[in-house]
Write a protein that binds this DNA or RNA. Sequence first.
DNA 1: CATGAATGAGACTTCATTCAT
DNA 2: TATGAATGAAGTCTCATTCAT
Lengths: 218, 218, 218, 218
Amino acid sequence: MTDRPASPRPESPVEPLTRGHKKRARTRQGLLDAALRLFSRQDVAATALQELATEAEVSTGTIYNYFRTREELAEAVGLALASEFSETITELSEGVSSGAQRLAIGVRMFIRQAQADPQWASALVRVIHFDRAMHSKLAGYVLNDLRAGLAEGTLRYTDEGIALDLVVSAATGAMRATLDGRAIPDHDVRVTEMILLALGATAAKAKKIAALPLPQGD
Amino acid sequence: MTDRPASPRPESPVEPLTRGHKKRARTRQGLLDAALRLFSRQDVAATALQELATEAEVSTGTIYNYFRTREELAEAVGLALASEFSETITELSEGVSSGAQRLAIGVRMFIRQAQADPQWASALVRVIHFDRAMHSKLAGYVLNDLRAGLAEGTLRYTDEGIALDLVVSAATGAMRATLDGRAIPDHDVRVTEMILLALGATAAKAKKIAALPLPQGD
Amino acid sequence: MTDRPASPRPESPVEPLTRGHKKRARTRQGLLDAALRLFSRQDVAATALQELATEAEVSTGTIYNYFRTREELAEAVGLALASEFSETITELSEGVSSGAQRLAIGVRMFIRQAQADPQWASALVRVIHFDRAMHSKLAGYVLNDLRAGLAEGTLRYTDEGIALDLVVSAATGAMRATLDGRAIPDHDVRVTEMILLALGATAAKAKKIAALPLPQGD
Amino acid sequence: MTDRPASPRPESPVEPLTRGHKKRARTRQGLLDAALRLFSRQDVAATALQELATEAEVSTGTIYNYFRTREELAEAVGLALASEFSETITELSEGVSSGAQRLAIGVRMFIRQAQADPQWASALVRVIHFDRAMHSKLAGYVLNDLRAGLAEGTLRYTDEGIALDLVVSAATGAMRATLDGRAIPDHDVRVTEMILLALGATAAKAKKIAALPLPQGD
DNA sequence: CATGAATGAGACTTCATTCAT
DNA sequence: TATGAATGAAGTCTCATTCAT
């Protein structure tokens, strides 16, 4: 995950894409990239659409060809972040059959990515906060693993919703800690172990699963 | 806690104000009360100071006699919220010697209060987000109990900072769930049990401690 | 007149366009039709050219191949409205030799058309207001009849300009009344009678001429 | 009427009015005066509120302390114009018992005032057009005289609404003519005579009543 | 201290117009 | 010619902040 192929955000070179209607897509992507850069520096609510224009080097009017409101922008950015995230996680979890383990991989990647790409993490955290929809998007990714873990007997929790909340809260909490510079070595492993414990894994299994080497990279 | 005597915010009874200079305190309190009401409805950043003036029924200029910036206001509101909260918790935990138990009481009260007074909770969540300092304020209340729990052998965690983060994240996550209308019966007990598990308590102890009757009320 | 064959505006049937260069004419007509629909709903000044493009289902750039400014557009629409109106009136007045009677026919048709096609009337009123030139266009149609009426002794007015103004003002006033939903039965007849009186017709003649059956339809 | 005591609009000197809350009234009046000046030069719809700020020499924000929209401004201006107008007319008509004669006085004053103060007239015409409410305001002044004229036997019309429309349309039409520079000597008298004819007065009475000397100043 | 009118910077939004395709 | 993305000037509106009373 640390070696995430290439962050497509900053500047996204992209080939010329000379054909006419591709221009729109390119501009849109440029706006999303710019928004991400801004959101990594400042709160969504504090971001003026005119700032976005400046950052993306388009004129003010252009923004409105793509996003009518700040909410719409945030949602689009959130969608992009979520897709990107899910792709990476899914890839890495492909060969893993254990739900608990897939969950652990997801959480750890999430936290490691925050360390590797603070800009991404910062934007993600802010968008999650601003666009409540993203919250449930992330939750969706977790749910399957949670259920699988329960079915296979590794996890033992009484309420799915609460379990979900805890996983997401703890993981984003760890991201914030990372962004605040409070990360410690193996931060991802430690947090994951605690989450597994909370979900009812035995101490031994929690420790073991949390510490398994990640499929690719490290 | 559910029977918290009376929400001191709306209308702020205040003593008869025998001394002349108490008027200042009363005006200030009126502003804080108004801010709380506003923050329970809308984001801190989206709250105009002129709105505050209207809500508090003072003129715009008056605000500047009390708060120089929106940040200062938010901080003051946060402080008020935190003090109020800590008082209540501390009161209730007075006779409890076990750290883990005091922690459980605190977390549960936090969540129950969110159910009992969504306005308070909503404002709290928003202020926490706007004024990052509050986060550490809340953490401060947790730390002692955490250490005591560790010392008495009930809890077993490897990193204090991570443990702290997890407790606070999970607790505020539960608050948000409550505000989103996703609370379930015994929500406070369930979340607390999971937190205790995460902190290394045995399943039996976690279950027992989380479910103990709250000192007053319940 | 009430049974005016078909409003040529919406959809503009247009001939099959055998010649290539008829496409231009068709596009232009489409723009005029669209403008008329828009002007019937909203003020000329409040109508954005981009709205016109949408309504006419052409792209924004295309408009500039036909009209350089909003004024030019309004004038073209006004011209179309005026021609259309004059044609109809002229047709109906063909066999009528009395000036006063032709005048009466014109005024009545004007008002009846406002009842039959409020969209047309609304656009007309707005264009008249925006493009002052139209005012005199309408006046032109009246002048001949006015003079004939004077010559034949039916009408008796001292100043031609004032008479013209009165006729046009009263007629458009009646249109507005119609658009405001204040029309009454025989509105056209009543107004016409008063106009004839104002122009110096005797009470008997005014009554009679105003009430004569219209050449075609009713 | 030509000797209308003093146009309170341009610059309205007004005494210092030192007391605090009078300032608001003074600013408001300044805005109305400025609006009138603007409306005399350009259409209401074409008048930017910022222009008003410039003309009134206040900052943009100040406008919004008084008028939220252009409509509100137009209405306020219309109200001021109407009051002013009604005062003058009422004054002059005070000792006149005949309805037809009062009507004649009103119409004539209206037209003469347009000659004497084109700025006022221009603004009035534009506001009437923009703020339909004014139309009915003016109508209100006419209605009584119309009914009195009917009762006393001088006038003879079949429909009150139509009569009203005709009077107002013809009078404002004459104003427009004046503004367009098409006024002729005794314009007011001529138009009034035609209106009286339209309302069913005999030729003799119409001529006589329209030509009576105006109560004050001729 | 309280008041609230005035300020003006700055964000939002629309739209006539251009221009590369 | 038609297209429609991009532009940027211009207008709308809000709000933190000041200041005379």
